[in-house]
């Protein structure tokens, strides 16, 4: 109840005050350089990783990256830089 209400307040604030969405709503910020690099901030941990697939936990739902020859160049508690050949970036909602 309270959680939903807070979400709505934040959404309203973002629209009214023109604040960046990733800060106000704790959403991931994804930067891609062509199809060779993907840089994801604000993730919540690694779920699965192989050389063809990366699955990250987000605050709401999961992020699935598919491709080939994946290497995690750097990983920090809230950031990850993935290198390889990226084919797909998919959001999975689980609520």
């Amino acid at each position: 109840m309270v959680k939903k209400w807070r979400q709505q307040v934040r959404s309203w604030l973002m629209n009214q005050l023109e604040l960046p969405a990733d800060i106000v709503m704790d959403l991931p910020r994804i930067t891609m350089i062509g199809h060779i690099h993907i840089y994801i901030e604000n993730h919540r941990g690694l779920l699965t990783f192989s050389d063809k697939e990366l699955r990250l936990l987000l605050k709401q739902g999961q992020l699935l990256v598919r491709g080939e020859q994946f290497v995690i160049k750097t990983i920090l508690p809230e950031e990850i830089l993935l290198e390889g050949k990226i084919h797909q970036v998919i959001y999975l909602d689980n609520d």
Partner: peptide, 8 residues
């Protein structure tokens, strides 16, 4: 712990 160049 700082981790880099992770390969599976």
């Amino acid at each position: 712990i700082f981790v880099w160049n992770v390969k599976k």
